[in-house]
Structures are given as C-alpha cells and as structure tokens.
Deep mutational scan, measured.
Amino acid sequence: MAAGGDHGSPDSYRSPLASRYASPEMCFVFSDRYKFRTWRQLWLWLAEAEQTLGLPITDEQIQEMKSNLENIDFKMAAEEEKRLRHDVMAHVHTFGHCCPKAAGIIHLGATSCYVGDNTDLIILRNALDLLLPKLARVISRLADFAKERASLPTLGFTHFQPAQLTTVGKRCCLWIQDLCMDLQNLKRVRDDLRFRGVKGTTGTQASFLQLFEGDDHKVEQLDKMVTEKAGFKRAFIITGQTYTRKVDIEVLSVLASLGASVHKICTDIRLLANLKEMEEPFEKQQIGSSAMPYKRNPMRSERCCSLARHLMTLVMDPLQTASVQWFERTLDDSANRRICLAEAFLTADTILNTLQNISEGLVVYPKVIERRIRQELPFMATENIIMAMVKAGGSRQDCHEKIRVLSQQAASVVKQEGGDNDLIERIQVDAYFSPIHSQLDHLLDPSSFTGRASQQVQRFLEEEVYPLLKPYESVMKVKAELCL
C-alpha cells in the first residue's frame, strides 16, 4: 500500500493539533497551500530580480507567473513527485505547466533550498508574528487579574506546605514575570531571523556568478533584492546548502521555554482548584465526569500541561538535527523538520489560546482563602504575639514557653481530632496574655502579614508589564474561544 493518505478522510490519521486544537490561522501558515504558494512567490521574486539585473526574462513571463501564483494543481504535483521522487522539481514542473512561456526560467540558477529553506524562514517569521500578540493578550488578562487582587491576602506555599502570606495578585505576578520573559525572547528570536537568500547549491553562489558572467556586484544585488522582497532586513552571508540548523534550535528553545512557563502556571491553577481557592472557567453544560456528576475538573489547565510537556520535548529534535548536518548538509534534517517545526508552533498556539481562555474567566473564592488563612495564621502570628507581650512588660522566655504549650495543644486538636485551630481562643482565655487581649485582632490582621506584596504588584505592572504590552494595544480586544 502506498504511503500517505487522504487526510480529510475519517479513515486516515490526522494530527489532533490540526484537527482538534490549533487555530485556523496557525494551521494555514503550515498548510501545503501556504507552503507551495510561497515557493511560487519566491520563484517570481527571483525572476523579477534577475530581470532587473539584466537576464533575458520578459515582462510577459513575469506576468504569467504572477497570474498563476494561486493556480496550484495539487493532484498534478503529487503525481509528479511520485514520478520524480523530488518535491521541488515536482512543483517546478507543475508551475511550468500553467506558465508555459515562463517554464524555462522558473528556478533559474537556484537549488531546492532556495524555495525550501527560504519558505521555512518566512513561515517561522509569520508563525512567530501570530504567537506574539496571543502571548501579549494572556499577559494582559493576567495583569488585569493581578491588579484587581493585588491586596487580597492568601496563604503562600513553599514545598506545598503553608508559608508566609502573600497576595493573590502577587502570586499571579510570578506567572506574568515568566511570560514577559517569554514574550521578550519570542520577539528577540523573531527579529534575529535572517533570510537564507540566493546562495546556490553549497552556499557559494557559483551558479549565479556564472549567470551574471562573473559580476560579483550583481550577485550581491540579486541576494539583497530577493531578501528585501521577502520582507527581511538581512540575509546570511555564510550558508551551506541550507541555512544553519542552529536557527531551528533557537526558535524551538524559546517555544519550549514558553511551554515550561505555561505548565507551571496551569499546575498552580490545578492545585488551587483542589484547594477550592480558584477555578478555571466551567461552562453551564460542561460535564466533569461521566460517573461523578459533582466533579469540576480543571480540564483546560490539564490540557495545557499535557501539550506543554510535548512542546518542551520537541527542542531535542533540532538539537540532534543540527549535530548531524555533515559538511554542507545531509538530508537527516528533512523529514524531522517537516514534523517538529509545525508541531512546535501548533502546540504553542494551542496552549496560548487555551491559557487566554482560562485567564479571561478565572474565578476566585475569597471566603475559602480566608478560612485557610484562619487555619494557619495563628501559628504564624506567634512571633508577633511574643513581641507584643514583651512590649507590655512580659518575659520573652516565659511567653515563648506559654505559646509553645498552647500551640501544641491547638495542633493536637487540628491533627488528632480534625478540629479547627483554636490557638487564639486559648490565648484569649489565658490570664497571662490579658495585657494584649485587646491587640489580638490587630495582630491577626492578614494584611499585616503580606509585606509589600501589593506595592510590588503595582510597581511591576507599571514599570515592566504595561510598557512591554504597549506595541500590542491594537490587538488586545480579541477574545479566545474554545470549541473543545
């Protein structure tokens, strides 16, 4: 049975990233139509530049190519590739079939990587351009969430054990800070992308030097003109047959890092959902379990974690691919890159769409948070109580021993009897502590235990987050809708 299948058929496997999760716009960027249309555009740009620099290419040939950029006979191309065992030459023939007058000058002087690699770089750039505003929107939604809850005390956790208090907004800023680093890295790697350009079979530009009869300047002009037509500021000066596969490492490393950030955020949300302090959106008709109707599973956060793990592992592909590119190139890269580049971007696209949807509907339960604080705060307040007693004339050592005994009794009630923490009640009825009984409410005010959390939130948002989001103001209103 021949390899390949009808990918629109229910009898043929289709990647869930495309069929179930990723956005239509990201799927289109990695589609065959987008790819092969870009090949034709690159052939047109090459012909236009070659004509401008004096090669015998007519206006009629150029116009014929322009008129057929979208006229792609995919069936013919597939048949040609089956016959020739070469995808680029299959599309040269297919393009030439609908451009008979231009057929002889299509791909003039070029090698397969002229269309293959340059198209990949265009796709990487455009895919990054799709991700950047999506990530900015996630940051914006979380920034709104953090600002609104900047002063809401909550129990902090280290080692997932109760620690000092923080605020809900401050905790959210930990998430935002990681995503801001990801946004900066995505922008950097996007701006650092260079075009492969017009380089020939081993990167020496020998074929173009021959076409222009040894004119170095025209060869350099050709490279520059096509690079500018493709919208790049610069091209690699040095290439082998391909652009260095280190570029793929750079791009997928940034995406993998984004995956790590999203995994951490969504894990926190899942843990908070278990504590009943916070939940992701839950639709009115949504079913959490087929057997347990009360369940409210954090399905979206779980999906993000599941896909983020996949995204983090994909960076190993370009690392290994770059390491086995012998001399000017081997074909070890080809099949692998067809999979890992598309999957990385479709996965990143999915987790950003999902995280935006989550961040637009996060639900906080202040009463649950308050109750958990009441359970733990008495123990945390013991040092403040000791200091207040010393100020009232008591002995630190005597007070410490009193607190120690009462704390152990209260802990026994919590752990052995399943009761509430009654340390404060014990202190309130103990005559030894009568000098500070009137101060206990103040000493137990949760806001006095959150330090500068709310001020940190305000400063972080104003100095770091809002300036970073400013270039994306025009796209901030787009909502994230999930079908599944």
Score class of each variant (00 low, 15 high):
Arg20Val: 05
Tyr21Ile: 00
Pro24Gln: 11
Met26Val: 09
Phe30Glu: 02
Ser31Asp: 15
Arg37Lys: 13
Gln41Ile: 15
Trp43Ala: 01
Trp45Asn: 15
Leu46Glu: 05
Glu48Tyr: 05
Ala49Ile: 08
Thr58Trp: 05
Thr58Ile: 05
Asp59His: 05
Ile62Leu: 09
Gln63Asp: 00
Asn71Ser: 07
Asn71Val: 11
Asn71Gly: 08
Lys75Ile: 08
Met76Cys: 13
Ala77Cys: 00
Lys82Ile: 12
Arg83Glu: 07
Met89Asp: 03
Cys99Thr: 02
Gly104Val: 11
Ile105Asp: 08
Ile105Cys: 07
Ile106Met: 03
Gly109Val: 02
Gly109Asn: 00
Ala110Trp: 02
Thr111Ser: 09
Ser112Phe: 03
Tyr114Phe: 06
Gly116Ala: 11
Asp117Leu: 02
Asp117Phe: 03
Asn118Thr: 15
Asn118Met: 03
Ala127Lys: 00
Pro133Gly: 07
Pro133Lys: 13
Ser140Trp: 05
Ser140Lys: 08
Arg141Leu: 07
Leu142Met: 09
Asp144Val: 13
Arg149Cys: 13
Ala150Cys: 15
Thr158Ser: 10
His159Pro: 02
Gln164Leu: 12
Gln164Pro: 01
Gln164Arg: 03
Thr166Glu: 10
Gly169Asn: 08
Arg171Ser: 04
Arg171Gln: 01
Trp175Lys: 03
Trp175Asp: 06
Met181Tyr: 05
Leu183Arg: 05
Leu183Ala: 06
Asn185Ala: 13
Lys187Phe: 10
Lys187Arg: 14
Val189Cys: 15
Val189His: 09
Arg190Gln: 11
Gly197Ser: 05
Val198Leu: 08
Val198Ala: 13
Thr202Met: 07
Gly203Gln: 01
Gln205Glu: 03
Gln205Pro: 02
Gln205Ser: 07
Leu209Tyr: 06
Gln210Ser: 12
Asp215His: 07
Val219Gly: 08
Glu220Leu: 09
Glu220Lys: 08
Met225Pro: 00
Val226Asp: 01
Ala230Arg: 05
Phe232Glu: 00
Lys233Leu: 06
Ala235Phe: 08
Ile238Gly: 06
Gly240Asn: 15
Gly240Gln: 05
Gly240Glu: 00
Gln241Tyr: 01
Thr242Glu: 12
Thr242Gln: 12
Arg245Glu: 01
Arg245Ile: 01
Asp248Cys: 12
Asp248Ile: 09
Val251Lys: 02
Leu252Ser: 09
Ser253Met: 15
Leu255Tyr: 01
His263Arg: 04
Ile265Ala: 12
Thr267Tyr: 10
Asp268Met: 06
Ile269Val: 09
Arg270Glu: 00
Leu275Phe: 03
Glu277Tyr: 00
Glu277Ser: 04
Glu279Ile: 03
Glu279Thr: 06
Glu280Ser: 01
Glu283Arg: 13
Glu283Leu: 10
Gln285Arg: 07
Ser289Asp: 08
Ser290Val: 01
Met292Asn: 00
Arg296Leu: 14
Pro298Ala: 14
Ser301Trp: 06
Cys304His: 13
Cys305Gln: 01
Leu307Glu: 03
Arg309Gln: 07
Arg309Lys: 09
Met312Ser: 05
Pro318Cys: 13
Thr321Asn: 08
Thr321Ile: 12
Ala322Tyr: 13
Ser323Gln: 04
Gln325His: 13
Trp326Leu: 09
Phe327Thr: 12
Thr330Ala: 10
Thr330Glu: 01
Arg337Asn: 01
Arg338Phe: 01
Leu341Arg: 10
Ala348Gln: 03
Thr350Arg: 06
Thr354Gln: 14
Asn357Ile: 12
Ile358Ala: 15
Val363Ile: 13
Val363Ala: 05
Val363Asn: 14
Val364Thr: 02
Pro366Tyr: 01
Lys367Gly: 08
Lys367Arg: 11
Glu370Tyr: 13
Glu370Ile: 14
Gln375Tyr: 05
Glu376Lys: 05
Leu377Cys: 05
Ala381His: 14
Thr382Val: 09
Thr382Ala: 06
Met389Glu: 08
Lys391Met: 13
Ala392Tyr: 06
Cys399Gly: 08
Arg404Ile: 00
Ala410Cys: 05
Ala410Lys: 14
Ala411Pro: 04
Lys415Arg: 09
Lys415Ser: 06
Gly419Cys: 04
Asp422Gln: 04
Glu425Asn: 09
Arg426Tyr: 14
Gln428Tyr: 04
Tyr432Cys: 11
Phe433Pro: 03
His437Leu: 08
Gln439Ala: 15
Gln439Val: 12
Gln439Met: 09
Leu443Asn: 06
Asp445Met: 10
Pro446Ile: 07
Ser448Pro: 08
Thr450Met: 04
Gly451Pro: 06
Gln455Lys: 14
Gln456Arg: 05
Val457Gln: 02
Arg459Asp: 14
Leu461Val: 15
Lys470Glu: 15
Lys470Asn: 09
Pro471Glu: 14
Val475Glu: 14
Met476Gln: 15
Met476Ser: 15
Met476Ala: 13
Cys483Val: 14
